[in-house]
Structures are given as C-alpha cells and as structure tokens.
Simulated assay, not measured.
Amino acid sequence: MSYTTVTEPDVTTSGDAPVRKPSPVPWAVAAVAALVALGLVLWLVAAPGDEDTSDAPTAGSADAGFARDMAVHHQQAVEMSFIIRDRTDDEDVRRLAYDIAQTQANQRGMLIGWLDLWGLPKTSADGYMAWMKGDGHMGHQSKGGSLMPGMATDAELGQLGKAQGKDAEILYLQLLTDHHMGGVTMARACAEQCEVPQERQLAQGMTEGQQSEMRLMADMLEERGSAPR
C-alpha cells in the first residue's frame, strides 16, 4: 500500500487573525525524528550497566512480555491511523490520527529498544499475553481473529480501508476506542507487575494518555451521531 504525504498545519498571521498554511514535513519524517531523540534518552536511562547486567529482565518477565506485546499492539494503531488519513478530509480526525501514529510509533521504538538492550527476543514461544498475571487484567478479551485485547481483525482493517468520509471516521474512532481499551488493560498490568522503573513509568503514561484520547473520541463519535461499540 502506498501512502500520500500528510502535512501538518503551520500558523502565520494576517492582521489580527491567524492563518494556517501547510508544512512540508510528512508524518513519517516527524515520527522518525522524534523516535531518534527518544532512542537517545532510552539508551541513557534504561540500559543495564556496562559491568553488571544482572538486573536486566528475563525473557519470561512481565517487563519483556509487555515490551513485546505492546510493540505489536501499537503497530496496529499506527497502521489504522495511516489508513484513515487517506479516507477522510476531516481535519480533526486527521490531526488525532497524526498524534496517535506519532506517539505510538515513538513508544514502540522505546519498547523494542529495551528488548535489544536487554538482549531478549522480540517474540515468545508462549504466545501473546502470557506475562499477565491474574484474572483482573483480562476483562477486555480478544475478539475472534484478533491477536490481543482491543486489536482489530483483518476483516475490520479491510473494512476501514474501503470506507470513505464520515463512515470511515466513525469506524476508525470505534476501532481505536476498542484498541485503547485493550492497551490500557495491558499498561495497567505492567504498571503493577513490571520491575524496570522506566517501563512502569511509560506504562502509567500510556494509561493516562489513552484514557484521555478515549474521552476525546467519545465526543467525536457523538458529534457524528454515533458512539463507542
């Protein structure tokens, strides 16, 4: 699939009224630039010491499991956000999609970076979600055909890729609301079970950020005469 360049608004002034003009920076370039910056911070604050790696998480730990699973979970949110930008001209939806794509691409880079720094594999023979302990975190179950809680199925992604305009906006907002619900469940589990402080802090930030976006998406769905599923 090929993607067209999306420009973010820049603001100049004409008299007393602000006037928006397009910026030439595409989504991918902005996301990569932010990812590189975050990667440098990641290397400084989360790498095990050069002389002692005994504190690095094990492959079966919650830290490793969350990093692996959330990286996959985030990738789908990025994919859906790239899809919707070509299915609607609505500035509010496209702006939200840009924010989600950039944020989750950056966070995904951090999670994968941690796995590399810990010397751990990016896949697990135990499958997805095996690291989550207790029934309290499994209230939002996976749908038939989806990999993890909240994730869209291939059929739903195909439907989003064919929808246009308002129909595409509603479906995107509904799918992302479900996606965020599953992501919050996983992030809360990491905040309780993960041992690496930086990862727990990232998980808590994901919880707060995605809950805020869910409230925004509920309002946007209401404006379009719809609601979360």
Rank of each mutant, 00 (worst) to 15 (best):
P121I: 00
R95M: 11
H137W: 14
A62F: 04
R87H: 10
D154M: 13
D154Y: 04
F66W: 09
V32P: 04
D135L: 02
A46D: 15
M132R: 09
W114T: 00
F66R: 10
G39H: 02
A28G: 10
L42F: 03
A59T: 13
Q102R: 13
S81R: 08
F82G: 12
A152T: 12
D126E: 15
M138C: 08
G49W: 01
Q107N: 02
V29Y: 01
L35N: 13
G139T: 15
A47L: 07
S146K: 02
Q76D: 00
L38P: 00
L44K: 15
G139I: 10
V45S: 03
E156T: 12
L40M: 12
L147T: 09
A37I: 08
P57S: 06
V72R: 08
P48Y: 04
G150C: 07
V93N: 06
A31C: 11
D86A: 11
L96A: 14
F82H: 14
A64S: 14
G134K: 09
T88W: 01
V78W: 02
D89K: 14
D69W: 07
D69K: 08
K143N: 03
V36R: 12
H73Q: 05
S146W: 01
K122I: 12
Q107W: 04
Q102S: 03
P149Q: 03
Y98F: 05
K143I: 06
H137P: 04
